[in-house]
């Protein structure tokens, strides 16, 4: 499904859309706990559950940005705690590199955020979302990679 067009009525009303890829084992559970614990965090994220953060192909990130996301958040288990033992070590290499590539082509690196959040770290999850929403608000909407096909 496409991420629906941002409805911008005036500059202040604009709310960023963030696509968040959460790993099933730690981060999704962390987000769940945040909900169960009634922790408050902004409603700007659209969560996509993935088996492991290493499932996040950089193409997913680009596609999200092309289809209307203003930022992409990837959250995985802390290195060493991967359910599949080593998955997030690969994520770490890949996404560190991919971020530097985005920056190299003049794209704000803040639009891609990666964090390690365990199943117990509900607070850290909520904080991460808050922080990212603030950062993206400062940057404004992502127009650069947005699909020009429609």
């Amino acid at each position: 499904m496409p991420v629906k067009e941002n409805t911008v009525t005036n500059a202040n009303a604009w709310e960023p859309k963030i696509v968040a890829f959460l790993c099933n084992w730690c981060s999704y559970a962390g987000a769940d706990l945040a909900g169960v614990s009634r922790l408050k965090y902004p409603a700007n994220i659209r969560i996509i559950r993935v088996p492991c953060s290493s499932r996040v192909n950089p193409q997913f990130i680009l596609r999200a940005l092309q289809r209307g996301a203003d930022g992409v958040l990837v959250v995985g288990c802390h290195p060493g705690d991967c359910h599949y033992v080593t998955g997030n070590y690969f994520t770490r290499r890949r996404l560190t590199l991919f971020k530097s590539l985005l920056e190299f082509v003049g794209f704000e690196p803040e639009r891609l955020k990666v964090r390690w959040v365990s199943a117990a770290e509900a607070g850290r999850f909520a904080e991460t979302v808050k922080e990212m929403v603030e950062e993206i608000k400062l940057l404004g909407p992502n127009r650069r990679l947005q699909d020009s096909m429609l």
Binding site: M1, P2, K4, R67, D147, M149, L150
Partner: peptide, 9 residues
């Protein structure tokens, strides 16, 4: 066709 939801080109 490029299709997004109910709209397309």
């Amino acid at each position: 066709d490029v299709c997004r939801g109910f709209e397309g080109k």
